[in-house]
Nucleic acid binder design. Structure first.
Length: 426
RNA sequence: GGUGGAGUCGCCUAGUGGCCGAGGGCGCACGCCUCGAAAGCGUGUGAUGGGGCAACUCAUCCGUGGGUUCAAAUCCCACCUCCACCGCCA
């Protein structure tokens, strides 16, 4: 039995010292508060069982040593005692193991403790931090992204559905080029900011999925390949976080920028955003991912947000930044900022980027550590900031459209597309 | 997909049931020596959890998970990964 590594999932020592912190976090998220008491009780019972096991095991070892030296009657007596002890060791071991499992299972249901200052409440309770740019006023009736995409020969959802089903699409011609341009622009910006470029696997093992917190409440969102015990990732956050799984990192921070396809089942979103490519099963994403000292995590989070804002400025979109409320965070995030761009035909702001501070939540599950000044290994903090190209294409087409259906290309993208305007093909 | 080989404390390696509480070498750290360095010599050298102000101490970890046994790095079973060859194939 592994008595050590099993329960590092949350900081139990901190929980024992200050259970109120978790209780307050659960309250702000609208989650179960009583789980705190169950955890404390289970932890205590587990510790007692573990102590008993360790004592018995210690005795068993010392008897075992005598057995090998003893002869005749003495040996027989020792063997009898050893047999008895072996039975007890087995029992106490399975008892400790059982409690360990129960504790781990309970811990898995508990989301990360929110950062101080996170607005309490649910999806509607976000706080707007700032507005950047003005939503444009049109002197003509703006077309939505799908109509534009079809006029420009950029998006083909009909054939996407023919070949793969609902919520699938083709990016065609200039649409595919626009996607590549966005990916390149984002990758280049991140690389220039010191990130290491990564092309990660998108099929991962259960422990990678589990460790990043995607097999909890939202496991229905995940495509599974049971024959091979693999999962398709919904974000490259998963392989980037698991990259340093079971490692002690020698220097921090580590910054990676990954480009990958992402896959989501979109279970439970029937009827939501069915038109166009706002909500789809497969899309490409650039993901910034940082491993850092937990003491620097808040600063790093603001840096990721700043990099996302820089990208938004480059494509010349009006947007707002929101501080996502506790109940809408997802299990691994302690705090999350979204940048939402104005989508004219929806008369609404829609998420284009999202950055989360996961503190040590993922690092504990994945055993990613660093050495603190005292030389002790501690879990790192992980943060991510993400940019999905489909949403960006929607916002760019709609915001930069002109009366004749053509679309102005933002300056930063012109060198990739080789033109200043995308003209309709029909 | 098939056959064979291998996985031991950063790296290499010893280890075929109790003397393994894992030995040796390299590397690394510290000390001695030196004007300084190299060489040489000596000491130390992982992870996780628990107990102690502390020196220290207890348990767990030899790819992973089971099993046999009073006792497993060592025996048995399954799996994973890597290497080699064969087959098939974008």
């Amino acid at each position: 039995m592994r008595t050590g590594s099993l329960v590092a999932v949350i900081d139990l020592r901190a929980l024992r010292e200050d259970p109120e912190r978790l209780r307050a976090s659960q309250r702000a998220r609208g989650e179960d508060e009583a789980v705190v008491d169950r955890l404390l009780e289970l932890d205590e019972r587990r510790r007692a069982a573990l102590t008993r096991f360790e004592q018995l095991r210690s005795e068993q070892k010392s008897i075992g040593k005598s057995v090998s030296k003893a002869k005749g009657d003495e040996r027989e007596q020792l063997l009898a005692r050893a047999r008895d002890l072996a039975q007890q060791v087995k029992e106490s071991e399975s008892e400790a193991g059982r409690l360990q499992e129960e504790l781990t299972a309970t811990l898995r249901t508990v989301p990360n403790i929110i950062e101080e200052g996170t607005p309490p409440g649910g999806e509607q309770d976000f706080v707007v931090l700032e507005h950047v740019g003005e939503p444009r006023t049109f002197d003509f009736e703006p077309r939505d992204h799908l109509e534009l995409g079809e006029m420009l020969g950029a998006i083909d959802t009909e054939r996407g559905a023919k070949v793969s089903g609902a919520r699938f699409y083709y990016l065609t011609g200039i649409g595919a080029q626009l996607q590549l341009a966005l990916l390149n622009l984002a990758m280049e910006q991140a690389i220039d900011s010191g990130f290491t470029a990564m092309y990660p696997p998108v099929l991962v093992k259960p422990e990678a999925m589990e460790g990043t917190g995607f097999l909890g409440a939202h496991s229905a969102e995940v495509y599974q390949l049971p024959q091979d015990e693999l999962y398709l990732v919904g974000t490259s956050e998963v392989p980037l976080a698991a990259y340093h799984m079971n490692e002690i990192i020698d220097r921090l921070p580590r910054r990676y920028v990954g480009w990958s396809s992402c896959f989501r089942r979109e279970a439970g979103s029937y009827g939501k955003d069915t038109r166009g490519i706002i909500r789809v099963h497969q899309f490409d994403k650039v993901e910034m991912f940082s491993y850092c000292d937990p003491a620097d995590a808040h600063e790093e989070h603001l840096r990721l947000l700043a990099w996302e804002k820089e990208m938004l400025a480059k494509v010349e979109l009006p947007y707002r930044v929101i501080d996502v409320a506790a109940g809408d965070l997802g299990s691994s995030a302690a705090r999350k900022y979204d940048c939402e761009a104005w989508v004219p035909t929806q008369n609404a702001y829609r998420e284009l980027t999202s950055t989360s501070n996961c503190t040590d939540f993922q690092a504990r599950r994945l055993a990613v550590r660093f050495r603190d000044e005292g030389g002790r290994s501690q879990p790192v903090a992980t943060l991510n900031g993400t940019l999905a190209t489909t949403r960006w294409i929607v916002a760019i087409l709609e915001n930069h459209q002109q009366a004749d259906g053509s679309v102005r290309v933002p300056k930063a993208l012109q060198r990739y597309l080789g033109r200043e305007v995308i003209e309709p093909v029909r």
